[in-house]
């Protein structure tokens, strides 16, 4: 019974991972910006399913809420506001097979290497227990308290920078740059 259950979970995992890979490839090879954004959202949802199957339900919820809910909506909003047309001829030149076949070959070799390394790695504990959000929170606010503070400062800097960039201000030039 346990073996059958584990195999079922494996099948779900492989389906979600395949959907993630295919939609990511569609996202980075598409011409239309809106279409690739929608494929990117699909990829994020598939990765969230993968996180759930990897015993991290808290991270799966965060992925759906923050990534697919907030960041991607911001992307789609800006893309629709700017109304980007089809891309120019240089992207067409980048997309022909000669440009990307060597990096993808190297990445495939790296992937096979990683897979072989993971297969030969001795697995000590098979029956993993779930990592609860409580454990994550305790570790976040005791061990990584300084990093939390630094992340807060980074978010503050992001808010100030976005406000500064977004404000439509009067153009002020340096006095050397003003044409007489």
């Amino acid at each position: 019974m346990g073996v059958i259950h584990k195999n079922n979970m494996d099948i779900f995992f492989y389906i979600a991972a395949t959907i993630a890979i295919i939609s990511t490839i569609m996202a980075i090879s598409g011409r239309n910006a809106i279409h690739s954004l929608l494929f990117l959202i699909l990829s994020l949802l598939a990765i969230s399913v993968v996180f759930y199957l990897l015993d991290a339900p808290f991270i799966a919820a965060l992925e759906v809420i923050i990534y697919a809910g907030a960041i991607m909506v911001l992307f789609i909003f800006v893309t629709m506001m700017l109304n980007i047309g089809l891309e120019k001829k240089q992207e067409k030149r980048w997309l022909n097979p000669r440009m990307w076949i060597i990096p993808s070959l190297l990445a495939a070799i790296l992937f096979i290497d990683l897979m072989l390394a993971l297969r030969n790695m001795p697995t000590t504990v098979v029956g993993k227990q779930l990592i609860l959000p409580k454990q994550v929170g305790i570790s976040l606010f005791t061990t990584y308290l300084l990093a939390v503070e630094i992340a807060g400062i980074l978010l503050m800097a992001g808010v100030i920078g976005a406000y500064h960039l977004g404000s439509q201000k009067k153009k002020v030039l340096h006095r050397f740059l003003i044409k007489k």
């Binding site: 808290f58 991270i59 993993k128 994550v136 990093a147």
Partner: peptide, 18 residues
Amino acid sequence: DQPDGQVMFIFILAVTAV
């Protein structure tokens, strides 16, 4: 079996938002 990786993912989320 450590929660450190999930903590790191939360930091990645913050950096991505900024």
